[in-house]
């Protein structure tokens, strides 16, 4: 009985007893969720347009952040470094299209998945060769990112919101809105959606697959850069950040591989669920459950909706 009480009643008593703590946990979960959603967004963009499950998204994020930090450490002014990094991401997109996607067109999905693995290894190696393996500090001030915290007195307690987290949430929202407009309203966006729907049909109306892939990988690279800046500002920039991309995978299966809103909603659910679970239920079984709780949550959803919350319904034919 005691154990049931501690699982089903005690955490809620705690939540009711200290609402400020609950709000703080929720807020941290939401911010974490936004950042997961950003990584998941990069995955979704590429998966939609080229059907590639891009495992390298996490390392692209680290690579972008490292390039930016490495350039600023060399004395390049931050805005210029930002532009240069965007240029590097473009070159990366071109190289990936030319040397990985084009030769592997029409191969089974798992081959392309494996190819992005090879890409991950190459990027890790090259990144470490150029920038070294030591953690670096993100120059937040030079990038006009706010620091410090806002303390709110609500619910009889103190809730502290990092300004950086607020900025992250704002930037993420702006980026998602921008991408939505780009996809819905522009000529290239329409072409992207056409490619996502059907490669051959898109080819037959004169859309160049190669160009589209470059654009998509470049967009994913820019998203990776933004994510990298945000994560890098919260903790140092190093290859350990790559692990975070593994956290974005449950977000993907929860939201569905092909859905941008799914990535965002999924990210928020996973972020909040993870923090709440760790804070209120984690101590019961020894803590550290953050590493797999996200997967358990996603799996639970998946048993009821095998295509994710917002994924397209899977219709199978013989």
């Amino acid at each position: 009985m005691d154990i049931l009480y501690r699982i089903f009643i005690d955490p809620f008593v705690q939540m009711g007893g200290a609402p400020d703590l609950l709000v703080q946990t929720l807020w941290e979960g939401l911010v974490g969720g936004v950042l997961y959603a950003l990584i998941a967004l990069g995955f979704v963009l590429i998966f939609k347009a080229s059907g590639v499950f891009n495992f390298a998204q996490g390392i692209m994020m680290v690579f972008a952040a490292l390039t930016l930090v490495g350039l600023t450490e060399k004395g390049v002014p931050a805005p210029l470094a930002l532009l240069l990094t965007i240029g590097v991401m473009y070159l990366l997109a071109v190289a990936v299209e030319r040397f990985v996607l084009r030769p592997l067109v029409n191969q089974p999905d798992i081959m392309l998945f494996m190819a992005t693995f090879g890409l991950t290894y190459v990027l890790i190696g090259v990144g470490e060769l150029i920038f070294g393996g030591n953690p670096k500090k993100m120059p937040t001030d030079a990038l006009f990112l706010p620091s410090g915290a806002i303390d709110l007195k609500i619910l009889g307690g103190l809730v502290s919101l990092q300004k950086l987290d607020i900025a992250a949430a704002v930037i993420a929202s702006v980026m998602v809105a921008g991408l939505a407009i780009f996809f819905q309203r522009t000529r290239i966006g329409r072409a992207l959606r056409a490619v996502a729907d059907d490669h051959q049909a898109a080819l037959s109306v004169g859309i160049s697959l190669n160009q589209i892939w470059i654009i998509v990988w470049f967009t994913a690279g820019v998203v990776a850069l933004a994510t990298g800046i945000m994560w890098g500002a919260r903790s140092d920039v190093s290859f350990a950040l790559q692990v975070i991309s593994l956290k974005a995978l449950p977000v993907l299966i929860l939201g569905g591989f092909t859905s941008v809103p799914g990535a965002i909603v999924g990210g928020l659910i996973i972020g909040v669920g993870e923090k709440l679970g760790e804070f209120y239920w984690g101590p019961l079984i020894g803590g550290g459950i953050e590493s797999w709780l996200a997967y358990a949550i996603a799996l639970a959803f998946l048993l009821f909706r095998p295509q994710g919350l917002f994924g397209e319904k899977i219709i199978e034919r013989i």
Partner: peptide
């Protein structure tokens, strides 16, 4: 280099 070469060979 091991990383780079392994990755490149996989590709």
């Amino acid at each position: 280099l091991t990383f780079v070469i392994t990755g490149a060979l996989i590709l």
